[in-house]
Write a protein that binds this DNA or RNA. Structure first.
Lengths: 330, 330
DNA sequence: CTGAAAGCGCTTACAG
DNA sequence: CTGAAAGCGCTTACAG
């Protein structure tokens, strides 16, 4: 590979001058700069990042540990958000996927330490509590889409409660009066927050809570998710008679569309449907297309990166809002 | 940060001895090895990868360039496949997402060269032709899920034709006789191959091609994908009267399920449904669940990495088979 | 089995 | 504005 010395010889200057040009040091005679630039071009020189890192004693690398417990399409936006910031600020993002079988979290952290990362983003694929090794306290660390019980790390998570309030508020504002919320498992933090938000929306508007039915229809049993969404929808329609249904996630909404079609009910006309996630193609593919609360994964990725970039050390718990995407189902 | 010299002082040996222990050089007295290991543990020493790379003149890094034209959930398996191999062989995988707006391909390649990558995997998110800068010929490069017209690079792609033959063959073997294939845009290589495979399945079994209807129902117009899947399904059911429908992708199959339900037809009983992709949750969420051909993204990621690992230079065009996932719809 | 010297490709710190 | 020297934390090559 061509080095700084090769370029120097080719350009007829000292290798230090080449280093100056490559690092945009302004104190180089324009004439020499030109010469060097031409040689760089001619030889195809590119600085050796490993050597730079060694000498500078700064890696410029931020580690990103992603747990792969679930495979949810939009979660990749967390990585994307961080990566775009990294690119913009000329930093490296070193992404490591961990999962129980293949790599331990410890091994991932060790790996990142070997690369002398200047900060670590630990991101969970769904909003939940995690527990992390103590070694992470040695280095600036942010948690994205998750939190620890110890409370020693800065975190950024979706504002579940606000999301619940917003979507239910939007439904009420559209004139829907009787809302059935088919929620996720209430042991999940998301389900708790959204439930509280839904109730708050009713209370703020002085609506009677008699007109709000909340029920968990996806529950975890023995490590498996069991959905009784279709059955629950049938029952709730018959007994509670909602004029709108709020679904805990878009895939569930898809199932509800099937139920409604089988009952001869038209979404957006006979009954309104709202949901959470903005899950891949599903919202656009349904007819009518699905109004849903998009998770702020991209924004969380950015937030986490910027926290590290700004060299912050405050232990904040930042909550980012969802984005209401209005389509035809409400 | 603690260095090899700190450890040496702490252990009372020469720093070279520490290096030997860290690199598992067997020619170290067990006694000294113990001493060093204890000091490594006590001081929390971890080798500095940048310094190792600099001196070894080997980066151990493989670059992975991912085009993000589309956001298809399972495409992440391409990265996963490569990453797991990298981990296993103690290599680094440096993943760079490119997209038209943010980073140019050139910039990504330049970035990878700065890191002295020992090989590059260029992966496309859907099977298509790409064009790549000449600079990539300077370094071992494999294309995954894509190919160039120049034919200078090794490639690994899904075997579209075999997939078409397998799924249609499976349908025929189950006793379905009249099959409507609602294909993707035929300008897409996947659609071409699958069509040829479907025809071959009929021919191999001596079935009349009168009983195979193939039609493209998702087409690109002005850069936008237009799906007329629902309409086309209605028409084809009325006119061609198939006993099974093969869908070009799982999201389309979902739409067809809605159509069939509205027509009072039961999937798996009145009519069989097959599909391609194994797209995220969709196949499992449909009732009955969807039989589909899973794309070999994970396998392509592994294949590409192994090609580079084995230091191959042959310009092969490897085709990997899909996996038939049998569920309730056939 | 161990160690002192030289060197990887850069940057830092300093002299001119 | 330019350059020679020293050094980053390791590995290589060699001597003992």
């Amino acid at each position: 590979m061509v080095t700084i010395k090769d370029v120097a010889k080719h350009a007829g200057v000292a290798f230090k001058t080449v280093a100056r040009v490559v690092n945009n040091d302004p104190t180089v005679k324009p004439e020499n700069r030109e010469k060097v630039l031409r040689s760089v071009e001619a030889l195809g020189y590119r600085p050796n990042r490993a050597a730079q890192m060694t000498r500078r004693k700064k890696s410029g690398v931020i580690g990103f540990i992603a747990d792969e417990l679930l495979r949810i399409p939009y979660t990749f936006d967390l990585i994307r958000g961080a990566q775009e910031m990294a690119w913009k600020h000329n930093r490296e993002l070193m992404v490591l996927n961990i999962n129980e079988h293949k790599y331990s979290l410890e091994a991932a952290v060790d790996h990142l330490f070997q690369h002398r990362v200047e900060g670590i983003i630990y991101a969970s694929m769904y909003h939940r509590q995690v527990s992390l090794p103590d070694s992470l306290t040695q280095i600036p660390t942010v948690l994205a889409n998750c939190y620890t019980s110890c409370g020693r790390f800065a975190t950024v998570v979706p504002d579940e409660e606000l999301a619940g309030e917003q979507i239910v508020g939007a439904m009420l504002d559209k004139g829907y009066r009787r809302i059935a919320f088919l929620n996720l498992d209430e042991r999940i933090i998301a389900a708790q927050g959204r439930k509280a938000g839904a109730i708050r929306a009713f209370e703020k508007r002085g609506e009677s809570l008699q007109n709000l039915h909340i029920e968990s229809v996806i529950v975890e049993q023995d490590g498996q998710l069991i959905s009784r969404a279709r059955l629950a929808a049938c029952e709730v329609i018959k007994q509670f008679k909602p004029d709108a249904i709020l679904c805990g996630q878009d895939p569930m909404a898809m199932e509800i569309y099937f139920v409604l079609q089988s009952l001869g009910l038209k979404v957006g006309e006979d009954i309104g449907i709202g949901s959470f996630d903005n899950w891949d193609l599903i919202p656009e593919l349904l007819q009518p297309s699905l109004t849903t609360m998009a998770l702020p994964h991209y924004e969380m990725g950015r937030w986490a990166f910027n926290y590290l970039l700004d060299e912050r050390t405050d232990v904040v718990a930042s909550k980012l809002p969802f984005r209401l995407i209005s389509r035809g189902s409400l």
